[in-house]
Write a protein that binds this DNA or RNA. Structure first.
Lengths: 225, 225
DNA sequence: AGGAGTTTGTGAACGGGAGAACAAAACGGG
DNA sequence: CCCGTTTTGTTCTCCCGTTCACAAACTCCT
């Protein structure tokens, strides 16, 4: 939390960081469509954001556009990728090869965006003979050696909730400093370790809340009582 | 975006709404552990937030605590559940039964939190004989009848990116008003339809950004060049 | 019954992000 | 070479969310 930005110190706002991958994806889409140059307006439309917000976000990285012209798609794409750090591959381990672990291991979006799954681990020995996504499921005991050998700094937790904290502790001890947690539990980790949480049912509950309100007040009109 | 809150108008801030499911889960955990009463401090710790924030969040729902004592776990749990709207079941359809669709269909967290998967749909006919999570995969053509018969208002999209917009359009036309989108694409929907997006690779990219910065400035010290 | 000790609920200050509006800069045409 | 047009980069303002701090209210002990 204490963002030490010693001297070079271009600190990009967290909200902007969260949108950069969206811009990256939009730019990739434009490039595949044959577009070589785009305005902030076009790119913003592709990314589903306001053009003013887009320009402000990009301004934190530097001045990569040309006034009166727009942005060079390929050039900007590279600059954002470099800033995020996805110009090189990030080795990743996935722990917990249940339904969700399967899906994650097979998810092509990781590979194509600079993440390389180097190992799949599960505590259940009966799973250790399985081969998922071209990798054989290994024992959770191998975590330390795998992390050390492959210089892994990112771990994904897809275990049941009860196991998540223990897995996280072990990951941290092994040297992992970024964790993506799919288990529905709150992890406590030491300073310097980043945790991001994805909770499928929470998203649905948020939708349910709004849905419930819709049915109470259908279209801005309320039946006077 | 134009939040019409005509007269009754307890409008709960969006940030608070997003945390209510977390509190709900924390309360369920406490209840299972045998706790009947808890302070805001305890509950905040379980939910991983600040106690002041927790109290302010809860104050939007009403005064359900007792000063000097704390909150009755079961009572507060019910009040939050009622506010979110998960006291009754929400029927849900899932479209796209690939790896992720499989995982979602089997995810027990939906069932246990008031969401009932009523149908699994896929455009690929070769999948229509499969049975996943006790439901047989049906044709996407059946969407309208299923939505109408089961009064479905929430849809989940787990298709490839290219198909997502078409699926969303069809969902909206069928009467669905809340969409949870796992496909990596920006959906455009009419006003009155809520969309929430979950993007697995974006989360990893955000972690990668912070990870990259860590390695540049390991511990507040920077090597002078 | 009264006072000390807790804990909630909320008013107020603070910080950060979103959006509008504008100045700076590049291009193109005459 | 100069001026109008286009589009970026930035400044300013507003609003939402977070946090602090404290008064109100409840319990327990004497």
């Amino acid at each position: 939390m204490t963002a030490r930005t010693p001297d070079s110190a271009r600190d990009i706002p967290e909200a902007t960081v969260a949108r950069l991958p969206v811009y990256l994806r939009a730019l990739t889409g434009l490039a595949e469509g044959g577009t070589t140059t785009c305005s902030s307006e076009e790119l913003a439309a592709s990314a589903g954001v306001n053009s003013a917000k887009l320009r402000k976000d990009l301004s934190y990285l530097g001045s990569y556009g040309t006034r009166g012209v727009g942005y060079d798609v390929e050039y900007l794409r590279y600059q954002i990728a470099r800033e995020i750090g996805v110009t090189h591959d990030w080795p990743v381990v996935i722990v917990g090869i249940g339904n969700l672990g399967h899906a994650l291991a097979n998810y092509s979006g990781f590979r194509s965006r600079g993440f390389r799954v180097v190992a799949l681990l599960d505590a259940d020995p009966s799973r250790h003979d399985e081969v998922v996504a071209g990798l054989d499921v290994r024992s959770f005991e191998d975590l330390e050696s795998i992390v050390a050998e492959n210089d892994v700094s990112i771990g994904v937790i897809a275990t049941p909730a009860v196991a998540a904290q223990a897995v996280a502790d072990r990951m941290v001890a092994a040297g992992i400093t970024s964790i993506l947690n799919f288990a529905p539990s709150v992890l406590s980790v030491p300073d310097g370790v980043d945790v991001r949480k994805v909770d499928l049912s929470i998203e649905l509950q948020i939708l349910a809340y709004h849905e419930q309100r819709k049915s109470v007040a259908p279209a801005g009109e309320v039946s006077a009582t």
